[in-house]
Design a binder for these strands. Structure first.
Lengths: 126, 126
DNA sequence: TGAATATATGAACAGATATTCATATGAAAG
DNA sequence: CTTTCATATGAATATCTGTTCATATATTCA
């Protein structure tokens, strides 16, 4: 009895007890929303940036390619911890790596990463 | 015995067993790194974007001001869950609110939010 | 081939976090 | 002022996540 009836289906649960629901507002908003999976991917992307260790790694790689060991030393982290985080960063396509003998050098994948970080910095440092 | 001695102090622990540490690389990287607290704040900021529910809320608010109840209904969330997330978004200064009678309308705080999201979208939808 | 070194990875644990449930607050209408 | 309605909030819980520890993999050098 809230103006939403019939063919909606899937989940016919109430989510709030309010009676003042603006149905047309809701529909308009829903129309301009990206697909659920895009939203999910976007959240996942930001989640990767949302950790101090990973942000520090990304900043370290901002200007130069660095090997795992130097990263660990620079950031006061365990080699293992760095490796784990680098794996996450690589899976998210934020960094890439190349092998040089025994060492593996990591570097930022592209300029998207730099731009996203730069945007965030603007908000933080204003 | 790794070339780093004397006045460093604070934490004199080894973080990896590598002997091939490039000391000058490390120093250069450390110089161009922002302060720890800036990095922390930046990570905290992205952490807020790094959750599906909050991203969905932000997208819903992208084009229009919406009250809590409509948000809940639109996003298939509990009113309580929405409120909790809105609080986090507000504390991070990503949204603001105004009261209109019994309802509270939320809206994006500024264009930083839109730009950060837009940058993320570029990476995700490419 | 074998030893040494740099990196990767799996399991376990501790800390963080999103949701739910119950309830409090605050505005509005009678 | 009392009731009703919209929102806020505290506590509890289940889930997720980052680090550590132990160990595996892979490359170089003797």
């Amino acid at each position: 009895m809230n103006g939403k009836e019939g063919s909606m289906a899937i989940q016919d649960v109430e989510h709030c007890e309010c009676s003042e629901i603006h149905q047309n507002t809701i529909e308009q908003v829903l129309e301009q929303m990206p697909d659920e999976d895009v939203l999910y991917d976007l959240a996942e992307l930001f989640k990767v940036f949302g950790d101090s260790s990973r942000i520090r790694i990304l900043f370290a790689l901002y200007g130069a390619d660095i090997c795992v060991c130097d990263l660990a030393e620079t950031l006061n982290m365990t080699q293992s911890a760095v490796s784990h985080q680098l794996k996450i960063l690589k899976q998210s396509k934020l960094v890439n790596s190349r092998r040089e003998g025994k060492q593996v050098y990591y570097f930022l994948a592209d300029d998207h990463v730099r731009r996203i970080i730069a945007q965030g910095m603007e908000h933080v440092t204003e």
